[in-house]
């Protein structure tokens, strides 16, 4: 067993475990923190797969995103601390089956598809960043610009639908 295999497996199991904890706990703050740990484990898994830039980006972005999510959870939930052990689920059996079938289908594809030759080495971190920069400012520039524009549109849309409706005309 190589070190890379060990760390991919370890962080992968951690990400799955914390992902399951998100829906197992009654406390919404714990749910948000479990999702944060799951996403951080994924970032560490990216680092184990030698994608340094994406790993660091994932950890930084998810730390911010999940902190905001935890605040919203406390704001919106009737029982954010989970003291009342209130059940907030529906169609559990259908959901379990859908999740299980998705998992089995994904594993079957992973195991039975012939993925072709496996690359033994990846470019070093500096070369990866250069390649990604050239990709963003070259062939994928239009896609990247569209992503930026879409984020701007989403920010404006989110602000527009969340501001209170004005009662009557303001002079």
């Amino acid at each position: 067993m190589t070190a890379q295999m060990f760390f991919i497996g370890f962080f992968g199991i951690s990400a799955i475990w914390f992902g399951v904890v998100v829906f197992r706990t009654f406390s919404m703050v714990r749910s948000a923190l479990a999702l944060l740990f799951s996403q951080t484990a994924l970032g560490a898994m990216f680092l184990a797969m030698q994608a340094e830039f994406l790993g660091v980006l994932q950890i930084m972005m998810m730390a911010t995103e999940m902190s905001i999510m935890a605040i919203f959870m406390v704001m919106f939930m009737m029982d954010p601390g989970g003291m009342g052990t209130m059940d907030m689920t529906h169609q559990k059996r259908l959901s379990l089956w859908a999740g299980f079938v998705s998992f089995v289908g994904g594993v079957a594809i992973a195991v039975f598809v012939d993925w072709g030759p496996i690359a033994a080495i990846a470019p070093d971190a500096a070369q990866q960043t250069i390649d990604l920069g050239l990709e963003i400012l070259g062939r994928s520039m239009l896609i990247f610009e569209m992503a930026g524009l879409t984020i701007l549109t989403a920010m404006i849309a989110a602000t527009a639908i969340s501001i209170p409706e004005l009662k009557g005309k303001q002079q």
């Binding site: 991919i8 919106f76 689920t89 379990l96 859908a98 998705s102 994904g106 496996i118």
Partner: peptide, 27 residues
């Protein structure tokens, strides 16, 4: 290593499908 990573992806996808379908709260 590739199989491990793809299995992790499939498991996270499955857990996410379960959560998105079973929860009643928007967040």
């Amino acid at each position: 290593e590739l199989i491990l990573a793809l299995t992790t992806g499939a498991a996270l996808f499955g857990v996410g499908i379960y959560g998105a379908l079973s929860q009643t709260n928007l967040v």
